[in-house]
Simulated scan of single mutants.
Amino acid sequence: MKPIQTARLRLRRWNDADRAPFAAMSADPAVMEFFPALLTPDQANAFIDRIEAHWDARGYGNYALEERATGAFVGLTGLFDVFPEAHFAPSVEIGWRLARPFWSLGYAREAAEAVIASAFAEHDFPEIVAFTAKLNLRSAALMQRLGMARDAADDFDHPNVAEGNPLRPHVLYRISRENFERR
């Protein structure tokens, strides 16, 4: 997938200047509320390295988001292959994570819509999935605004979250190519 520009955002591959703001974002308890743990700077750097390796191997991945007007690092939005243990694998997941100053501006939706449109235009994905902790109502609401649908029978316990952790139960949303094109 190639870089994308929306009205307010630039979605692009990662560069070294993104590492410090990504690490800061990944250490923010509010941003990471629905993740099992905050990331250390080394873990954040390793995460970016995995994203870039995924891009190189698969031709798609999570974009770094940049605000066009200011050049500020906003967060990430993009695609990643679902972990192989998932009952819905193989599939491609869309995800997002934005730094707190950029919440409630519509950036997550703007970026996600652009990524989904580009993904269906450039790849033969039959569908794209998204999932989050059942407690994360804001992300689930965005999935719904994107036209994604949930079937409660698809909900699952995330295998990378410890048993007993309230973040383990996850909801799964899907959007097919056909449903996206109908929107």
Rank of each mutant, 00 (worst) to 15 (best):
G147P: 03
R68W: 00
D81S: 14
H123M: 07
L137Q: 12
L76N: 01
D18C: 12
Q5H: 15
Q5K: 15
F83S: 11
F120A: 03
G147I: 03
V129I: 15
H87L: 04
H158M: 09
A153M: 09
M148D: 02
R50D: 15
A114E: 03
A44R: 10
R168C: 06
A140K: 05
E181C: 11
A108Y: 04
P126E: 10
N165K: 08
M25D: 08
A24E: 15
A37F: 06
G164M: 03
P159G: 03
Y107D: 08
A149H: 10
R150T: 01
V92N: 00
M148K: 02
E52C: 13
A86Y: 12
V92P: 00
I4G: 02
A30R: 12
A99T: 10
S118A: 15
G59T: 11
E93Y: 09
L76Y: 02
L98C: 06
R19H: 14
D42P: 02
I116K: 00
G78K: 00
A23S: 14
R97N: 05
F73R: 04
V171R: 03
K134I: 06
G61Q: 06
A46T: 12
V74S: 01
S118D: 13
G75P: 10
L65D: 00
F80C: 07
Q43G: 12
L9D: 01
F35Q: 12
N45E: 15
L79K: 12
D28R: 11
A99C: 11
Y173D: 01
A133F: 04
N62P: 03
T6R: 02
Y107K: 03
T6Q: 09
D151I: 09
A141C: 03
Q5I: 11
A27M: 09
V74C: 02
P84N: 04
N165R: 09
D16H: 14
R177M: 02
V31Y: 07
E33M: 15
P126W: 07
P166F: 04
V92M: 02
E127C: 05
A140Y: 03
S139L: 06
A69E: 14
F131A: 05
I51M: 11
T6M: 08
E181W: 10
F80T: 08
N45H: 14
D16S: 15
T77L: 01
